[in-house]
């Protein structure tokens, strides 16, 4: 059935309100939309690495998770959900469990690109039937905006401050979606909550109902770390996509598909200037920083088009 936001929104809410995520945070929007892609009759075991989403959605004795949920530690949501999935297989074989259960591991970029990379890689390589979702806000936001390997170059964070000598983070972002694509798992996609959130919904649905390990990387802006006005969340998501800072694409059994090619690719400066963390890049004399970022974005976009056979 073709995607329809009104229909999707009518599905029973599986991630309830009352959680303590900040206004204007991208993560809960992403989580709600992904959970909407579940068949209503399927049970879910969701896991979450330590981070904003976990501490804000399951603060004892309250939980936002209508399904079953487990938090273990920072770096091990991949292996925790893998273990739950293994138990499911064993109990199902024994006839002790009826019906379908799906498995989703949620991690922020810190818990995914950095400290949880090993557990994620292991779980994907072993072929567990599970979806791993990274909500990428580009820094350790829960501990107070420290740089991660997902932090964009020049971003001002509390451990890569824009100082007198060093202008924010010195390194470019790790390309985790590519790292996961090179695990040769059945489905990998990069997506964002834009427009009527069709891209996110359809990719979540595909990832959930493709047998085997699947991975979604979803951009999830953070108003505190990125320094934007909370109502601007959806505009920032859109700018990330329109500038090709965050291309929407999927890798289906090794085949690359670019899902959206902007007719007029916007300069990355439009994405950067909307955020306070890049403010120093717009001071006179720092134009080379913006040029540098534009060059990197272009290089990665061209490489992606080539992989998809479109360049």
């Amino acid at each position: 059935m073709a995607y329809n936001l009104k229909q999707a929104a009518k599905k029973p809410e599986r991630f309830t309100g009352g959680h303590r995520m900040c206004a204007g945070c991208g993560a809960p929007v992403v989580v709600r939309q992904i959970l909407r892609a579940l068949n209503p009759e399927d049970h879910l075991v969701a896991g979450c690495s330590t981070g904003c989403l976990e501490v804000s959605s399951f603060l004892y004795p309250y939980t936002s998770w209508e399904d079953s949920f487990i938090h273990n530690a920072f770096e091990n949501v991949g292996s925790t959900i893998a273990g739950a999935e293994a138990a499911y297989v064993a109990l199902k074989n024994k006839g002790k469990i009826k019906g379908e259960t799906k498995f989703i591991a949620f991690g922020g970029d810190g818990g995914t690109y950095d400290i949880g990379l090993q557990a994620l890689s292991g779980a994907m390589e072993r072929g567990h039937d599970m979806l791993y979702v990274c909500y990428d806000n580009g820094a350790y936001m829960n501990t107070g905006i420290q740089r991660s390997s997902a932090t964009p170059k020049y971003a001002n964070t509390t451990t890569s401050p824009a100082g007198e000598v060093i202008p924010g983070k010195s390194q470019s972002r790790k390309d985790l979606t590519e790292v996961m694509a090179n695990h040769h798992i059945p489905y990998v996609a990069q997506t964002a909550a834009i427009g009527n959130m069709k891209d996110l919904y359809e990719k979540a649905e595909k990832a959930l109902y493709t047998k085997g390990p699947t991975f979604l990387n979803v951009i999830a802006p953070c108003p505190r770390g990125w320094q934007y006005n909370t109502p601007d969340l959806m505009d920032i998501n859109k700018l990330a996509v329109e500038t090709c800072f965050w291309p929407l694409y999927e890798v289906i059994d090794g085949k690359y598909v670019v899902n959206y090619k902007p007719k007029n690719k916007k300069p990355v400066s439009e994405f950067l200037k909307a955020q306070g963390r890049f403010k120093h890049m717009f001071k006179a004399g720092n134009e080379h920083m913006i040029e540098d970022v534009q060059k990197e974005v272009d290089k990665r976009w061209e490489a992606l088009l080539k992989l998809a056979g479109e360049a």
Binding site: H43, Y60, T63, S68
Partner: peptide, 12 residues
């Protein structure tokens, strides 16, 4: 895995 009685584990 008890879909009749979901549970959240490992809170803050």
């Amino acid at each position: 895995l008890n879909s009749e009685k979901p549970i959240s584990m490992g809170p803050l």
